[in-house]
């Protein structure tokens, strides 16, 4: 038994959880400051999760409802395992070499699917609306996201993330080597973070928080944990692909924080879209840039 593997998994998860939680707290603080409030302390999300885990949970709607949050957290930790945290293998390797971008694209959908199934069984109409909105929105932002990734795969003939990281050691950040794909990817990424104006899935005022509306106590705690881990995984993946990864933790935090602040700041000043507006947005400029990125890639290899 390889103990360092297990140690690596544990440390990776703890890092992801902590960073994701702190980022959530910082975003709440930033929102508060922009609204001229004092705001909660930045460790507020830890207290929330701790409290949620300390609650009793007596909700039963069927076994899929119990499995939904577990499925979500499994999917987000699994995604995390395949993303290299630092480049050149300086962090624990976990399962970095086993997967590639195409696999990750599937993996990132899995968590949402689990949530959708779990929320579907609660029988709450708000959950059902939230799920249908979430899946339609996913169809929206997956198009530019896939176009961006496929453009990179075509241009550099590489599908593994470690391969992309090594490539960037030689030619610099992909953000400059493949700028149109970067723009498309960034715009799609804003949607993936589910901050306003793309928070149509969890809209608290109109949908009563959507899919999690029947989940309280420990289930909600699990969902928050999974959300924090998944946020971190997504951020690191984005940094790995476009921003050349990071060679130490500080650099990683800096880069991920900058990327994280884009959707947060954009969200604070935006109202919420409707579902079809959101989809139309993603099929507009982001998809356009994605297509340009493909043409650019084709031009570069020709």
């Amino acid at each position: 038994m390889d103990w360092s593997l297990i140690l690596g998994i544990i440390i990776t998860i703890i890092t992801a959880f902590t960073v994701g939680m702190f980022y959530g707290g910082i975003s709440r603080k930033v929102t508060a400051r922009i609204q001229n409030r004092v705001g909660p302390p930045i460790w507020q999300n830890f207290l929330d999760v701790l409290k949620l885990y300390s609650k009793e949970s007596a909700i039963h709607h069927g076994w899929m409802q119990h499995l939904g949050p577990l499925w979500a957290i499994t999917a987000s930790t699994a995604t995390l395992m395949f993303v290299p945290i630092l480049n050149n293998g300086q962090f624990y390797e976990n399962l970095n070499f086993s997967g590639d971008l195409i696999f990750l694209i599937y993996m990132m959908v899995l968590g949402q699917l689990g949530m959708a199934l779990g929320a579907g069984q609660t029988g709450n109409p708000n959950s059902a609306i939230g799920v249908s909105r979430g899946l339609s929105q996913m169809v929206g932002y997956k198009v530019p996201w896939l176009l961006a990734l496929v453009a990179i795969m075509i241009q550099f003939k590489v599908t593994s993330i470690t391969g992309i990281l090594e490539l960037q050691n030689e030619i610099g950040w992909l953000m400059f080597a493949s700028p149109f794909a970067f723009i498309a990817g960034l715009l799609a990424f804003i949607g993936m973070m589910h901050y306003a104006p793309f928070d149509i899935v969890f809209a608290p005022s109109e949908l009563a928080s959507g899919p999690p509306s029947e989940f309280g106590g420990k289930y909600l705690g699990l969902m928050m944990t999974s959300g924090a881990i998944f946020t971190f995984a997504k951020l690191v993946l984005f940094v790995d692909i476009f921003l050349g990864g990071a060679s130490n933790i500080l650099e990683l935090l800096l880069k991920t924080f900058v990327i994280y602040m884009i959707p947060v700041l954009y969200g604070i000043v935006s109202p919420r879209y409707r579902t079809e507006q959101s989809i139309r947005y993603f099929w507009g400029w982001p998809t356009f840039f994605g297509v340009i990125g493909m043409l650019y890639a084709w031009y570069m290899i020709a």
Binding site: R37, G39, Q44, I59, N126, S209, S213
Partner: peptide
Amino acid sequence: TSRYDAERFGIRGAATPRQA
């Protein structure tokens, strides 16, 4: 909201009874 800002005490709105 901004004037009295209950969120600094960790008080925040919940959307459904299950979460409250």
